[in-house]
Simulated scan of single mutants.
Amino acid sequence: MSTYVFKEKQFSSLYHKYIISGSSEIMAMILSYVAEKFLFTPYSIMYLKNEPYCKDIQKGLPLPLSLAVDVGCGTGKSTLPLAPHFKSVLGIDFSDSQINMARQCNAAENVSYTVASAEQMPLEDESVDLVNAGFAVHFFDQDKFLSEAVRVMNKNGCLALHACHPSMQVEYKNLSQDLTQVMHEAMANISKFDCNSFEHLSSQYQSIYEAVPLKDKKWITDITEKVSMSTAGLIGLLQAICCFQIFKDKDPNGANELLKNTEQRLHDLLGEDAESAVFNVYFKHHCVLACKS
């Protein structure tokens, strides 16, 4: 399986340094969805009104729930943003290396991390208010994971599955079209080494949305996020993609040549700006949301 690379310490360092974080707009959308589905139901108001942290419930402010679980948490980039909104957040990942990096780099008082499988979570039935999986569910056994997610979700508990399209748009002066083409060609070569994951990402999780075994669900696509990146950041991003590491294991010379060629093409286009240029890079995010009613 392609996921073996996540167990490698060197890859975890690359992944943490260069992989993009989840969309801030998607995270806000998830938290709003949780508030809509749980916090402001008549049942939840009765349940929560005596909690000391719920004094603002009548004002309609976001309030912390009990437990969120970030599945396939990696180095914790999607885990830490949940911390202000829940009493406890648990990040789980099958990779010791990723979990160790998460503990070092994305720690908080109410956040913990553990090594565990997405398809067999170490959690009680109906114990979780939010099951979150960012940039991860396309690596899971989806049927087993979705069944497990439903098992651990509370009544009114929510499921959030999100990632971004593998293509990107690079904006810089009058070179945007050419720079974007260079990155698209590099990604197309890398994608050959994990077609299944790229198919899910390219379809913006359509089949995953259809597989979610809950009636109350929604599918959001084409959420654009702008990220500032350098030439080194673009090359680093390619290396931080799981498929590139598989490419490198199978064909080290070919993978290194791809990086070298891509970097050279960027430098040729940018000229003297190659080292100092800061690009606007646009990623297209998507999200599946569901509620266990």
Rank of each mutant, 00 (worst) to 15 (best):
S12P: 13
V71S: 01
S197A: 06
F40H: 09
H138T: 09
A186V: 12
H16Y: 12
N50Q: 08
E225V: 12
S13G: 10
N154V: 11
D216R: 01
P81H: 05
D143Q: 14
F198Y: 06
M29E: 12
K192E: 14
Q142W: 07
S197P: 02
Q104W: 00
G254W: 06
E275Q: 09
F139A: 06
I246D: 10
I208W: 02
Y113V: 09
K59H: 13
E148H: 10
Q104N: 09
K59R: 15
Q181K: 07
F86K: 04
A83W: 05
H285N: 06
K7R: 15
A133W: 13
K55V: 05
S203P: 00
N132Q: 12
A149R: 05
R265V: 07
S66M: 04
H267K: 06
G254T: 07
S44K: 03
F244Q: 10
Y43S: 11
Q177L: 15
G76H: 00
S44A: 11
T224G: 08
V111H: 08
I220M: 08
Q245R: 14
F145W: 02
C54G: 09
I57V: 06
S230K: 03
E25L: 13
Q239V: 10
K215N: 03
E185Y: 04
V5T: 11
G233E: 02
E185K: 07
S44E: 02
N196C: 11
G233C: 06
G157D: 05
K218W: 03
Y205Q: 02
S147E: 12
P42K: 14
P84L: 07
L63D: 03
A136F: 08
G60W: 11
F198P: 02
S167R: 11
L63Q: 05
N50F: 03
D70L: 05
A107S: 14
D70G: 02
L123K: 12
E185R: 07
F135M: 05
N154W: 04
V111Q: 05
Y4R: 13
K77I: 12
E8K: 14
A277H: 01
A107H: 13
C243N: 10
